[in-house]
């Protein structure tokens, strides 16, 4: 299979370099050939402009956040509590809160999601059920995050009576990232060649042994990428924790899973929309946005790195 792809690739290059060009020369007049070349140049330039504009836009966001935030972010900013009605001091409790919420979300979603993916890929052969479930999961992945927030409010905060708390927020975020974890793990498990499973069965291994020792280790980089990307998503989401976990200010560290917390993304939002000192708060918000941006870029960077390495390893 791999050799075949290489061969077609080589052929394509040959076509592009020699055959296509000479065919153009032979079959059409020189003038129309030149027009075609001009159109090609213009078209390629247009597409180049598209990617350039995209990178410039997105780069400018990163640049502005860095420019505004780099003066604010110091070691003290990361480790201190806010002071003077949010106009001075640091963001430590918000960082801690985001850490708790993200950890909680992964603790909820990872075992459930992984088990679901393993069951769907390794135990049920029926493709009809698989398709139905896949469509359901895809749909949930597209549901707006604020709707997950409402679900969390109705079920965890009110129905189960957990209140506005770390627990409610973690559960809500966990359900939010569940579809992503399931589909990433499923994809990774399905990419494991069947011959490996068959070889394992042929050696007398049971299904569980095959899963534990052959399939999951093989699929691990893919699963890990999906999980890390989900962590990044959970850390950056605001809408789901708006009514389930987040507080503008807490006096103490969270005492139990049932206390409300400050969280980094919500902190940025609250600084921009509440409070009485908009100017000083904007400065703190710049710092918080920079910290969040670096955090999320580091997390998703790790995931992308793992994926790239795995790709080159597998060819």
């Amino acid at each position: 299979m791999r050799r075949k792809i290489c061969v077609t690739g080589v052929f394509r290059k040959l076509f592009e370099r020699t055959f296509a060009r000479s065919a153009g020369n032979v079959s059409v007049s020189a003038g129309s050939y030149r027009n075609k070349q001009a159109a090609q140049k213009a078209g390629f330039f247009l597409l180049f402009c598209c990617i350039l504009a995209t990178l410039l836009f997105l780069g400018s966001i990163v640049y502005f956040i860095f420019a505004g935030g780099s003066k604010v972010v110091t070691w003290g900013f990361l480790t201190q509590w806010p002071r003077n009605a949010m106009t001075e001091g640091g963001i430590f409790p918000a960082l801690l809160g985001t850490f708790y919420l993200t950890l909680g979300a992964v603790t909820v979603a990872l075992p459930l999601g992984l088990a679901c993916a393993v069951y769907l890929c390794e135990y049920t052969p029926g493709s009809l059920a698989l398709n139905a479930i896949r469509i359901g999961i895809n749909n949930l992945a597209g549901v707006p995050s604020v709707v997950f927030g409402l679900f969390g409010l109705a079920v965890f905060v009110k129905f189960f009576g957990f209140g506005v708390s770390v627990l409610s927020g973690s559960l809500t975020l966990g359900i939010l990232i569940l579809p992503g974890i399931i589909s990433a793990s499923q994809e990774a498990l399905m990419a494991v060649p069947n011959s490996l499973r068959e070889a394992s069965f042929a050696l007398g291994a049971t299904r569980w042994q095959t899963i534990k020792k052959i399939v999951v280790p093989q699929a691990l980089p893919g699963i890990l990428t999906g999980v890390i990307l989900s962590i990044g998503r959970a850390a950056g989401e605001t809408a789901p924790i708006l009514f389930t976990a987040a507080a503008f200010y807490t006096r103490r560290y969270p005492q139990s899973p049932f206390s409300e917390v400050m969280a980094l993304p919500y902190h940025i939002y609250a600084l921009m929309t509440e409070g009485t000192h908009p100017r000083q708060q904007t400065v703190i918000a710049y710092g918080s946005a920079l910290v969040l941006l670096i955090l999320v870029l580091l997390i998703s960077g790790t995931a992308v790195f793992i994926r790239q390495r795995h790709r080159s390893y597998n060819g």
Binding site: L229, G232, A235, G236, T238, P265, M272, Y286, V296, S300
Partner: peptide, 21 residues
């Protein structure tokens, strides 16, 4: 990878950028 990385920027950062810049 760069495009994948940029897909991860949280929406609150975009909102903040829109509001202040």
């Amino acid at each position: 990878p760069l495009v994948e990385l940029l897909a991860g920027i949280p929406s609150i950062v975009f909102g903040f950028f829109g509001m202040v810049v």
